[in-house]
């Protein structure tokens, strides 16, 4: 919730200290992906010496692909849902049309040449 997190620019220094390094959004994504990627790599390669049962291995190997596909489906689902439920403001358009008529009449009365 963005309202809770920010408290006005004047308090910035006070709250966070002057030496805070802010990452760009790109850097945040790269870090996140790198961390998840290395966890996955460590588990699948078994380089820590911990030998996972082969049934786990079978799930783990294609996991990134599964995640990618489900993220894609999620995105399509969300966007589709939002397109379908996008409000059509018929009333607002009608109201505007009638106000336009009213405005024209009033402005002509006030001496405006359109």
């Amino acid at each position: 919730n963005f309202r809770a997190q920010s408290s006005g620019p004047h308090r910035e220094g006070e709250l966070r200290g002057p030496k805070v390094v802010t990452m760009t959004k790109l850097a945040q994504w790269l870090w996140g992906l790198a961390i998840l990627g290395s966890i996955w790599a460590v588990l699948t390669m078994g380089s820590l010496g911990l030998e996972l049962p082969s049934s786990y291995q079978e799930v783990l190997w294609p996991l990134p692909a599964y995640l990618l596909v489900s993220a894609g489906c999620y995105a399509l689902g969300i966007v589709g849902y939002r397109v379908a439920t996008f409000h059509d403001c018929e009333d607002a358009a009608r109201e505007l049309q009638s106000q336009i008529q009213e405005a024209r009449a009033d402005l002509v009365r006030k001496g405006l040449r359109f």
Binding site: F2, R3, S6, S7, G8, P9, R11, E12, T22
Partner: peptide, 9 residues
């Protein structure tokens, strides 16, 4: 605005 910690309604 978000970077500068401004609040948005």
């Amino acid at each position: 605005a978000r970077q500068l910690n401004y609040t948005i309604g």
